[in-house]
């Protein structure tokens, strides 16, 4: 039901790629920084949030956006949404996947398995463009790493110390919540929607989320802000599924390196003691 509504809305609104580029010069607002569970040296994904985010991807985004680098088996990975294997199998089976050719030489549809990747909503880019009036929705697998905004001096220097890595998620959340009425005097070309965070402001994607659109079963608020946060967290996981493994190993490496470097420092100090306080050099020269 929801799927068809979104599809219909998107179909009706066609994107003018040329109009987008012409307006690129316009300044976009800076995305406000959000709190993410996966930021900082110990921050990990929140499985419940990822499950909610997956629900939004499934019911809303997947109508147009592919997620082709992800396999159904990834849904059970540690540090991810934490679906049980049975649940992930059921999710996979609810998707129709193209396989083949079979013995008759025909391609055929079958329910998905854990090893399958998420099937794309359109068979190819041209089909997507044809269906969406020329617009090509980007694949979402790497979206959270492939988007961002200019941090500028001196913030980019501070970011190295504060470990701020969430430009992509902040930007995506800002886009999802940034649909406003255009300021007076600004005309939005047909098929585009005004978004204050999008460079050039005329976004080909019509406003995808509205309050109460997706039903949550865990009591989380059903607001655009919460939806945006949840689906962004899901996309962050999709783009960096090994974050959990990376940060855990990183901590171990740090403990190891600090101990090793400390031991090397004291060994070095011991060896160089005689060089820095050279007994033979501090004596008066024999020939003096």
């Amino acid at each position: 039901m929801n799927r068809s509504i979104v599809l219909a809305v998107t179909l009706a609104a066609s994107l003018s790629a040329l109009g987008m580029e012409a307006a690129l010069a316009q300044e976009a607002a800076i995305p406000p920084p959000q709190h993410w569970s996966f930021s900082g040296p110990f921050g990990l994904y929140d499985p419940e949030q990822l499950q909610r985010g997956f629900k939004i991807y499934r019911e809303v985004c997947s109508t147009c956006h592919s997620l082709k680098l992800l396999a159904f088996r990834d849904l059970t990975d540690r540090g991810g949404p934490g679906f049980t294997e049975a649940k992930a199998k059921a999710i996979a089976a609810s998707f129709q996947v193209t396989d083949g050719p079979n013995k008759q030489g025909q391609m055929y549809q079958r329910p998905g398995r854990l090893a399958d990747h998420f099937p794309p909503p359109f068979p190819n880019d041209q089909a997507a463009r044809a269906a969406l009036g020329g617009a090509l929705p980007p694949d979402m697998s790497d979206l959270a790493k492939g988007r961002g905004y200019e941090r500028g001096f001196p913030w980019f220097i501070f970011d190295a110390f504060t470990q701020y890595q969430e430009e992509g998620p902040d930007y995506i959340h800002a886009i999802l919540t940034g649909y406003t009425a255009p300021p007076s005097g600004i005309t939005v070309p047909p098929g585009a929607s005004y978004n204050k965070y999008f460079p050039g402001h005329n976004l080909g994607m019509p406003r995808p989320l509205s309050d109460g659109q997706v039903k949550y079963t865990d009591g989380a608020p059903e607001t655009v802000d919460q939806y945006g946060r949840d689906v962004t967290a899901f996309l962050a996981w999709a783009s960096e599924p090994k974050l959990d493994q990376r940060k855990r190993l990183g901590f171990q490496v740090f403990v190891y390196l600090i101990v090793l470097t400390g031991l090397l420092y004291f060994t070095k100090k011991r060896v160089w003691r005689d060089v820095h306080h050279p007994a033979e050099l501090t004596k008066p020269p024999a020939s003096a």
Partner: peptide, 14 residues
């Protein structure tokens, strides 16, 4: 381990 994409450009994930 903590900021692996700090020196990378987001566009290269497209």
């Amino acid at each position: 381990f903590y900021i692996p994409n700090y020196l990378y450009h987001p566009d290269n994930y497209i």
